[in-house]
Each structure stands twice: as C-alpha cells, then as structure tokens.
Amino acid sequence: MKRWTILSTLTIGAALLAGCASTGPSPELVDARRTYHQAVASPAQHYVPAHVLAARQALDRAESAHADDAGSFEERSFAYIAQRKAQLAMTYGSYAQAQRERALSEQAYNRAQERMRERARADAQRAQAALAQTRQELGEIRRALSAQDDRVSEQAQQLMAREKELAAREAELAASAGALENERAARKNAEMTAAAALKSLQDVAMVKEEARGTVITLSGEVLFASGKSELLHTARERLAQVAQALKEIGDEKVILVEGHTESRGSDALNLTLSERRAGAVRDYLVGQGVDASRIRAEGRGEHEPIADNSSAEGRANNRRVEIIIQDSNRAR
C-alpha cells in the first residue's frame, strides 16, 4: 500500500507536467486496475461489497476519461481515486474481518467463561454436598459419642452402685465374720461348758465319745430295782446332775435315751422294760428342765449287749441306760 501511495504521489506532479501525449493507460490507471482486482479477490467483496462497487464506479470513470482523453488529468485523478477506494474497500474488508474475529473471540471467551462458571458452580455444589455429608457424618459421630457417654455414665453409675453394694456386702461380711467369730467363741464356750458339764458326770456315769455321739452310760443297778421301771431315789440325784449337764451342752444337740436289758426273761418283756425305763429317765430329765422337743426315749431290749450275759458281771453291765448326745443332723 505504501508503494501505491508513493507512486501516486510521484505521478501527481508528473501528470500535471506531462500533458496528454500518451495514448496508453496512465500509471495511475494501471495501479487502479491492479488494486481493484486485488479488492475483488479480497474479503472486501464479501464484507463490504458497496465499497468495492464505489471503487468500480471510480475506475469506470477513469476508464471513460482514458477513452475520451488518454493521459488526461481527469483520467489520472479518477484512477487515483479509484485506487484509494479499492484500498479503502480492502481496509474495511480487513476491518470487518477483524471485527468478526473479535466477535468470535468474544463469543468463545463468553462460552469459555460460562463453562468455567458452570464448572465452578458444579465444584461448589460438589463441595457443598461433601460438606453436608461431612456435617451429617459429624452429627452421627457426635450422636454416637453422646450415646457412648451415656453408656459410660450409666456404667459408671452401675459401677458406683456395685461398689456401694460391695461395700455393703463387705460390711455385712465383716459383721457376719464378727458374728461368726462371736458364734464360734460362744460355741467354744458352750463346748467348754458342755465338756466341763460332761466331765462333771464322770463321777456318776461313764462318759465316752463314740461314732454315734457322746454316750453317757448309767448302770441299771443304780437307777432301777430289778424288773422295775421306777427311778430309785439315788438315781434321781444322779439324773439331776445329768439333766444339768444336758441343759448346758447347747440347744443344737438332740438327746436319745436308750434302755437296755440283760438276756434273761422274755424278749418282749425285756423290750417293754427297756422302753419304760428309757421313758422314765426321759421324763425325769424333762422334769429337770431339759427341752422335751430335743429328747426322746427308745427301748432296745436285750439286743444290744455290751458284755457277756452268761456271767453276773456281764449281765449287770448290760442292764443300763444310755443317754446319747448327738448333733441334730446326725440323729438316727
């Protein structure tokens, strides 16, 4: 374009000086024709056809002037103008093209921005959803922790209650141990008392420990007359001592009074006699204050001898009353 302008500038003066001697197209017309064809081939034809047409019209006037008066100032001037209009058309074509490119770029920019905004919105939505989920999970964790706290609190209360209960039981145990100790001491005292009481009987009866319990054996000779079941006067004194001892041995003991005879006489008679004698002793002991519910009487007759019935001494030993002191759980 610069070249065209320089050429055009140079030809202004040349045209004014040269006159109309030439019959060929002036340099301006040559340039105008070439530039016009460039304009037609350029985007100007598409974007700004009116400007191309104006260039065409100016070129036509130049051509007409050339036909009328070749090399005239008119020809050169219209050729000059036609070239400028062709350049103008190309420039506005370029302008329109740039404008279109700019519009396309702006549209692309707006679309890209919209996509970015959409992505940002989507990201924000995802972030919000993630945040909501996190909040929900946090809430669940808090609720779980709260429930756990409740359970721990409840367990602590249960533990405290158990500790209290344990303390109470320990106190009870201590009390029980004390009571047991007291009981043991009392029992020991009772046993000592019973032992002392039983020992005191050794002067009036034979006392010995057997598997069935403590057996106090009183000879039948000192208790009853022969064949009788009434207590002799001397027997009452001894039984009074026995009764005293039995009262001292404690309530947990039961007492069995067994009557025994020798083998002379009928079996039935001996059994009856032994029962009566046992009963008489029991009655007397009850009369002396021994608890009736703890004492019973049984006759064994001649069936459980402790000596040989063939001798007088043996028969005397077999005639007897045994008072058996037993633990209540061992009583037969």
Partner: peptide
C-alpha cells in the same frame, strides 16, 4: 480535493482497521 478526500477517507479506514485489529 477529491483525491485528498479519498486519502483522508483511507486514513480514517486505516485508523479504524488498526484499532479493530488491536481489539481483536
């Protein structure tokens, strides 16, 4: 004067084109 006008018009167009190309 017509030639001068065509040059001035071209100057306007070139200015606008340069500005539009810059914006594009």
């Amino acid at each position: 004067l017509k030639r001068a006008e065509s040059d001035a018009d071209l100057a306007i167009a070139l200015t606008r084109e340069a500005e539009m190309k810059r914006k594009a």
